[in-house]
Design a protein around this nucleic acid. Structure first.
Lengths: 185, 185
DNA sequence: AATCGATATATGATTAATCATATATAAACA
DNA sequence: TGTTTATATATGATTAATCATATATCGATT
């Protein structure tokens, strides 16, 4: 359901094709909701079936017609209903924490390497975040009013806050490993 | 794949039935990897098919036989291989952030209510975390050696760190809304 | 000359996870 | 007396998401 509403959110700004939407996703909300190309197309078809969007076929020569989707009044109402509603919390899932849970099986050196690798990944992702705002460029005219831009930045802030929390956690674990605070048995 | 390895991790401590494992999941790693009962049973069957676990049928009267699963040498090797390997990072997914991204559509009052609701949920979950260590009771003899307990606590710490980061983020947004820092258009 | 990337949509196959429901009995509880 | 809880496993149906692949053409690069 989340992808449906994310697409409705963008169609509420402007009519787009599936191809457009894939690029928009990759340059805006990818950091908290990546979307597969095939899933976008299928979801657009479902939105049309359910009367939340309408398709306009734009003929082209030498390549497939563009199918541009417009949000309907029903779609706009559904979008607002959903945004106003309670936060759609999903179950938390972190496969790396499964590794951590069972890491007692490993030697202290391997555990240290594991957490240093984890910290390195967090730092690498953190450094990518700096570049994200620059990527919005291509869509600057269509999407972000100052108000919209504010909320977009809040999602980046949230991602950064979580990354920093994870990095600090990993660093504190590294310190404890180095100072011999991991029980031997 | 993650569930397979989590189950292998527990079977490596001790042989268990699917019924046992469901209770163990719910009192230990539920906060970062919840598992459905039916999925546990199907995954156990697959572990056996693949030679990573062996099933021992324990007859009972008046109720279904227990099917207790023992990890095999292959299973133990696979578990160690996986734990030693790179962190299995998944794509981040946060449906609440989709709401945030499109919240510019709402009035400032509704936005304030939304973030206050979000902060309230974070606080409620935080208070639940205090009780988690008490729930391990029933399995104290079988699972946690001091070393294992240390890593189990690390997963709790990580969950807490992320919750606090999210709560602080929500609180900082609330302050900005109250002090009129949200652009009007 | 051949490959690659951009434009554009589409479908088949598979996986992981969820939800609902089924069977069967005993003990405890209201 | 009837309901719930605990014990124990199992399957069918569905959803969301991923992966692979197909079609078709142009322009740019190697």
């Amino acid at each position: 359901m989340s992808l449906e509403h994310a697409i409705l959110g963008f169609l509420n700004y402007h009519p787009y094709s599936g191809y457009d939407l894939k690029k928009i996703f990759d340059t805006s909300i990818r950091h908290f909701w990546p979307a597969d190309q095939s899933q976008i197309y299928r979801t657009l078809a479902r939105l049309e079936e359910n009367g939340l969007a309408e398709m306009e076929r734009i003929p082209q020569e030498d390549r497939p017609d563009r199918k541009v989707y417009h949000i309907t009044e029903t779609g706009r109402a559904e979008l607002l209903r959903w945004i106003s509603g309670p936060p759609p919390l999903g179950e938390p899932r972190s496969a790396p924490l499964i590794q951590v849970f069972f890491s007692g099986q490993l030697s202290d050196e391997k555990i240290l390497a594991k957490f240093e690798g984890y910290a390195a990944i967090m730092r690498a992702i953190l450094s990518q975040y700096d570049q994200v705002p620059a990527q919005i460029g291509p869509f600057q005219q269509e999407i972000p009013s100052p108000r919209e831009h504010f909320f977009w930045m809040l999602t980046l802030e949230n991602g950064l806050a979580n990354l920093r929390a994870n990095l600090q956690w990993a660093e504190s674990v590294i310190e404890r490993i180095k100072s011999g605070q991991v029980p031997k048995e």
